[in-house]
């Protein structure tokens, strides 16, 4: 009983991690994201759902400025991480991406050993002073990625030799190794089979203790299973944002209801 009340309290004191205000995104002349405002809380899994091409991935990529790598993409509006504008000129996008890690749709381990895959981020950011520290970071990251037991005996094997689900967990471990504060996941389970999906979902729930997690997903069941907050995007608009339970049981907007009951999308 005591534990429960403490948990309640922890939930109540969640802080806003990322605040987006009136974000507009253009690809050339196409207006991809229209006036989206959303607040993403710390220690929470926030799910972005919506039909294909609704802008959820585009919006996700704004949160760590991955859209900068696309020439024709233009972002307007404010996105604040801990109260600081990430599109401010003084912000180094490279540093930002270390703080806001990203996991992609298709597992993309580098053609290096498992160890080097995880050590990649810590090495480029100089997080370890010596080999022993690096070993420790790698081990901890692999444990947090829930893959340590499967790979601890073959850290020298190439990352590409793992199965799809293991590769995705390796990629999560790799993202975790740079000590990010936010983890962005772009359909992390779409290339995985149901068993690997279940493992990754379990892992996501676990990651919530340390990070703020934002996940884009096509599976409404997945959003319902793993997230506490859900945002529904449609045609570049944020239609509805709220507690996951409320969105799925009692949506306010008729479009949300149509989507979750399978009538659009």
């Amino acid at each position: 009983m005591n534990d429960m009340s403490r948990l309640e309290k922890a939930v109540d004191t969640r802080q806003t991690k990322i605040a987006a205000k009136n974000v507009q995104v253009y690809y050339g002349d196409a207006h991809a994201i229209k006036d989206v405002s959303v607040e993403i809380e710390d220690n929470t899994v926030t799910a972005f759902i919506g039909p294909s091409g609704c802008g959820k991935s585009t919006f996700l990529r704004c949160l760590n400025r991955m859209n900068d790598t696309i020439d024709i993409c233009r972002v307007e509006g404010d996105i604040l991480l801990d109260g600081e504008d990430i599109y401010d000129k003084r912000v180094d996008p490279v540093q930002l991406r270390a703080k806001v890690g990203m996991v992609f749709q298709k597992p993309n381990p580098f053609p290096k050993s498992i160890y080097d895959n995880v050590a990649y981020g810590p090495r480029i950011h100089g997080l370890a002073r010596n080999k022993a520290e690096l070993d420790e970071i790698v081990e901890n990251s692999l444990r947090r990625g829930a893959i340590w037991d499967e790979v601890k005996d073959r850290l020298d094997a190439p990352g590409t030799s793992l199965s799809g689900g293991q590769q995705q967990r390796l990629c999560i471990a790799r993202a975790v190794a740079t000590e990010p504060e936010v983890l962005l996941m772009d359909e992390p389970c779409s290339a995985l089979d149901p068993i690997a999906t279940a493992q990754v979902e379990e892992l996501i729930d676990d990651l919530r203790k340390r990070y703020s997690v934002v996940i884009v997903t096509h599976s409404m069941q997945q959003a319902a299973r793993v997230s506490q907050k859900t945002a529904f995007f449609h045609l570049g608009n944020l239609v509805e944002f709220g507690e996951t339970g409320q969105i799925f049981t009692n949506p306010k907007d008729p479009r949300t209801e149509s989507y979750i009951t399978g009538r659009i999308g």
Binding site: M66, G101, N108, F110, P111, R174, T178
Partner: peptide
């Protein structure tokens, strides 16, 4: 070389030359 390799590296905060 697949774009996902570059995305993976940039997403970890590596610079372009890294």
């Amino acid at each position: 070389v697949p774009q996902s390799m570059r995305d993976g590296s940039l997403g970890l905060g590596a610079t372009q030359s890294e």
